[in-house]
């Protein structure tokens, strides 16, 4: 099978040119990368623990160390570039970032995908990362520190691409070519599906917020007035409400 490298498309190049020139955006982007690299680092550490193939363990471990180091580098760079410090810090401090952006689920990625698909994921994902970071490095004419950082990270990504590709090629050569090919396509399909689901969620959230805004503006006024008239924000200690129901009955209800 052919292991074609991913090349950056014109859309990615064009969008990157715009995004990285927006005021304050480089710091936020760096903060977001700090999260994604951290997530990748944890994915790799989990793979390192979970793989049934001892020969893969050190490779996953080295990969994890790289990703965790990249996360720290992005974090430091985000702080250095921050124009609005509290906004950048808020992104850096968002401990739920990976969950809320659908980057990490409740199960380890390795468990979710299995070893073969995981390797295909690493190979494709790292290629995209290297392509992306290569573009970003080229945009950093006025920021040599960031340019150097991206170049260093890109070098690490090349190693990640190389080991995952080598492993996939080895498996393909062992008569598993169709399984490897299928795994690569499954990961491409997964990426497309996840993109579509993110789009779906975005549309859903926007529509729901629209409906909620209508409810708030049009429908809520009378209830708000009653609430303002009847609700007392009574301070101090008040007697606890004693629930007379037996504990066994209370336990079954959510109210």
């Amino acid at each position: 099978m052919r292991f074609a490298d991913i090349r950056p498309g014109p859309v990615l190049v064009g969008v990157s040119h715009i995004v990285w020139r927006l005021p304050g955006r480089p710091a936020t982007k760096m903060a977001e990368f700090a999260h994604t690299e951290l997530g990748s680092g944890h994915d790799m550490l989990e793979a390192c623990e979970l793989t049934p193939r001892p020969e893969m363990r050190p490779l996953y471990f080295l990969h994890a160390l790289d990703e965790l180091r990249h996360s720290r580098m992005f974090r430091e760079r985000a702080r250095a570039l921050a124009i609005e410090r509290s906004r950048t810090q808020a992104v850096l401090d968002d401990s739920g970032y990976l969950h809320s952006h659908g980057i990490r689920g409740s199960d380890p990625l390795f468990t979710e995908l299995g070893e073969l698909d995981f390797l295909a994921f690493v190979w494709l994902h790292e290629q995209r990362g290297a392509a992306q970071f290569g573009i970003y490095a080229g945009l950093m004419d006025e920021d040599p520190a960031s340019r150097e950082m991206f170049a260093r990270i890109e070098k690490d990504e090349r190693f990640h691409i190389a080991y995952s590709r080598k492993e996939l090629e080895r498996l393909a050569a062992q008569g598993q070519a169709s399984a490897v090919s299928a795994a690569v396509w499954r990961i491409r399909w997964r990426r497309f599906k996840q993109g579509w689901l993110r789009f779906s969620r975005l549309i859903g959230d926007t529509m729901a917020k629209l409906w909620l805004t209508v409810i708030y503006v049009v429908g809520i006024t009378p209830f708000a007035l009653i609430a303002k008239l009847t609700e007392r924000e009574q301070g101090g200690l008040v007697p606890a409400e004693v629930d007379d129901r037996p504990a066994a009955q209370r336990a079954l209800e959510q109210l």
Partner: peptide, 19 residues
């Protein structure tokens, strides 16, 4: 509204066409 949203979550692949 909650039930509608829950229903749409259950068919999230086609939800953008339903909204």
């Amino acid at each position: 509204l909650g039930l509608v949203l829950a229903g749409l979550q259950a068919v999230q692949y086609v939800a953008p066409f339903i909204y």
